[in-house]
């Protein structure tokens, strides 16, 4: 017996049971049949035709007008039948899109992968979590032959796929920078020209770039309109904003960036972030930078990587596990 015949038989049984005795048990059978029909893609017009045929079989003496009314009902249900089929095909398409985006997200992950340098002087922790599948934040580490460590963090204004596509470009622009040009201000100036030249004018990128030299413990940095990070001074136990002025990437190709310097002492921390961190929204509104400092303090005794992981988990919980923006947090902790 094929599915359709089987279905008709079930419908016949359930309907005749119900007509004999109008009880909930038979109606429950009806609900189960409804699910089966959906499972086997039976459209509403077929159900009505099935119903009419069953009635004719069960009550041959039924007035013709009553039976005719089902032909009218069948015609009315045609539109629902078409809408139902469209819905199924759209669902299928959505599934395909989802799979495609998942693959794209994996490709992006591989493309943007960066290795966290392993040096004695600095303990490094980094985490970057996209709000949706694809990430519009990006961070990057490089280590040159003089053991200097470059750290870049960038955020495309906007999120999702367009932002992610844009980010891949930054990564390749960074990779093609000449070795000797890792001075933060020249990195930002080069990238600014690339972005201005290649990216849609409606898209802007904020970026922070820092360079740490373990030999003289200098941290030099520059910012292109990026969310300011924090600096933790171990000697005084105070946190301060890592302020740096600079225009967003892609606005004006002649933009010059200012470079700032800081001497990093033992136990000091450099905290870099994207606005997805500070724009975490809890029930009481955006979190304050103070709240964030509180979280950092609470986790300060941990390894840098554990710190960023923990802070992410705590912020995720505070906003009920709904990320509104891509989230990136980097902590550099000085050991010398």
């Amino acid at each position: 017996m094929d599915i359709r015949e089987n279905m008709e038989k079930k419908y016949h049984e359930a309907l005749s049971t119900y007509l004999k005795d109008q009880n909930e048990q038979a109606l429950y059978q009806g609900q189960k049949i409804s699910r089966l029909h959906i499972k086997y893609n039976i459209s509403p017009e077929e159900i009505i035709s099935m119903h009419k045929n069953n009635l004719m079989e069960l009550y041959p003496e039924l007035p013709g007008k009553v039976l005719d009314s089902f032909d009218f009902l069948l015609e009315v249900m045609m539109g629902y039948g078409i809408a139902y089929r469209e819905h199924q095909s759209l669902r299928h398409q959505q599934q395909e899109l989802k799979t495609e985006i998942e693959i794209a997200a994996n490709v992006q992950h591989t493309l943007l992968e960066t290795e966290i340098p392993d040096i004695k002087a600095l303990e490094i922790g980094a985490i970057s979590v996209p709000a949706r599948q694809m990430n519009g934040d990006y961070y990057h580490f490089v280590q040159d032959e003089n053991e200097r460590i470059g750290v870049g963090i960038a955020d495309v204004i906007g999120k999702g796929i367009p932002a992610a596509l844009c980010m891949s470009m930054i990564k390749y622009a960074m990779d093609s920078l000449p070795e000797h040009r890792h001075e933060p201000k020249s990195v930002l100036e080069s990238l600014n020209r690339v972005v201005e030249h290649n990216v849609d004018p409606s898209m802007f990128i904020t970026m922070f770039y820092g360079l740490y030299d373990p030999h003289d413990r200098q941290f030099s940095y520059a910012s292109a309109g990026h969310e300011p990070g924090f600096y933790y001074d171990a000697a005084t136990g105070a946190f301060s904003d890592l302020d740096a002025k600079g225009l967003l990437l892609g606005v004006d190709k002649k933009t010059r960036y200012r470079q700032y310097e800081k001497t990093v002492n033992r136990g000091d921390m450099i905290i870099l972030l994207s606005d997805g961190v500070t724009e975490c929204r809890t029930n009481d509104g955006f979190i304050e930078r103070e709240t964030l400092i509180g979280l950092i303090k609470k986790n300060m005794h941990l390894q840098a990587q554990e710190m960023v992981n923990n802070i992410y988990k705590q912020l995720e919980k505070m906003q009920n596990f709904q990320l509104r923006d891509d989230f990136t947090l980097i902590i550099l902790k000085s050991n010398v």
């Binding site: 539109g79 078409i82 469209e86 819905h87």
Partner: peptide
């Protein structure tokens, strides 16, 4: 309309 037209 939902699902109407040529695809329908």
């Amino acid at each position: 309309g939902l699902g109407a037209g040529l695809p329908g």
